[in-house]
Design a protein around this nucleic acid. Sequence first.
DNA 1: CAGATTAATTGAACGATGTCTAATTTTCTA
DNA 2: TAGAAAATTAGACATCGTTCAATTAATCTG
Lengths: 198, 198
Amino acid sequence: MGRRSDHSREELRALILDEGHRQLSEVGFARFSAREVAKGVGYSIGTIYNVFGSYDALLLALNGRTLDLWLAFLEERLAGCEEGRLDAAIEAYFDFALGQRHAWTALYDFRLPEGASPSEDYRNKVAAITGVIVREIAAVLPAGAQAQALPLARSLLASVHGHCFFALNGTFAMLGESDPLGAAKARVADALARYGAG
Amino acid sequence: MGRRSDHSREELRALILDEGHRQLSEVGFARFSAREVAKGVGYSIGTIYNVFGSYDALLLALNGRTLDLWLAFLEERLAGCEEGRLDAAIEAYFDFALGQRHAWTALYDFRLPEGASPSEDYRNKVAAITGVIVREIAAVLPAGAQAQALPLARSLLASVHGHCFFALNGTFAMLGESDPLGAAKARVADALARYGAG
DNA sequence: CAGATTAATTGAACGATGTCTAATTTTCTA
DNA sequence: TAGAAAATTAGACATCGTTCAATTAATCTG
């Protein structure tokens, strides 16, 4: 079969992303297959390569979508939240990871070949999520510690990530920890206490 | 070729583990291949399956070896260390992950199929590493807070893991963080300060 | 020591993967 | 309307994990 006019380039791209994200969320990164996505949208594997160029590029696009969903989820949770916004953000972190388990895990299971770096677009998405945390931390830091908001946000993101990661991969269960979210909140509180936040 | 007397069962197992760990450390989890290991030891792929039963079992054994190396590395670093032992442990965490980059990453990239859980042997190895941290934290906690040593150790392990993970996977670089180790140490110090450690 | 039994080892087969490319077909352009 | 450009396909390729019948060497047995 040759050229078709079923979908424009952008429609096709969106179609593949929709179906791809659906499958990734269902089967997880390890079992994810570009061929299967092609089947799902009724095109051949070659078309996936025409649109995305490579398997890696497809996965980067799918992970980008996950980041978009994550940011939206985070902002929505914070939208009607007056007090305890930072705790709410941590809860949102956990809830998204648990709810979108496979998609979230794929963010970290998938790695570009050594030397390669993600697109500016992708980096911006990561920075956007970080930006939310920077904002929330700045809001609770005293005036004299505002300069610490960015480095602190990066560090606390890493801490929360570690807790969330151990919760999902079974490490915490193996060690008898039954309240990963509580532990994560406590560590964030520890750090903020030192900067006189409140 | 039929039965050979080149190696006993245990020698063969050790041979495969040696070569497997060498290759895993060299090429990383994504490019690791059981067939290639078979080539490396001069046996056929079938023999790998006779000895280990499955690809998953082989990888679990290889990750087990990484955990052994990690524990030994950690203890050796702490051996001649009088003060600042906890900071030394965090440094050791980072140094091992950086030095054994591929092997360390494989600990978390590889996942058992859903529902399956690692062997008791594997769980013990993870618990052993945790045990070292519990011990070191207990040593700096005041008498009244000893009960917190275990939960705190689990939580601080997660925090340090998050920092190490972000350092290795490029997230920190992407966010402009240039001292992940320093940040990890600071978060641990924050937590200990709250418990009156010193 | 000879023959039978057991155990280990092999390599081909299978279905699946990502990747590439020649051929085909449609659409656009001059 | 003829030719150029773009899109789509299907098959080929090398690789992967997995299985298994056949083969061969070591061991046991009488």
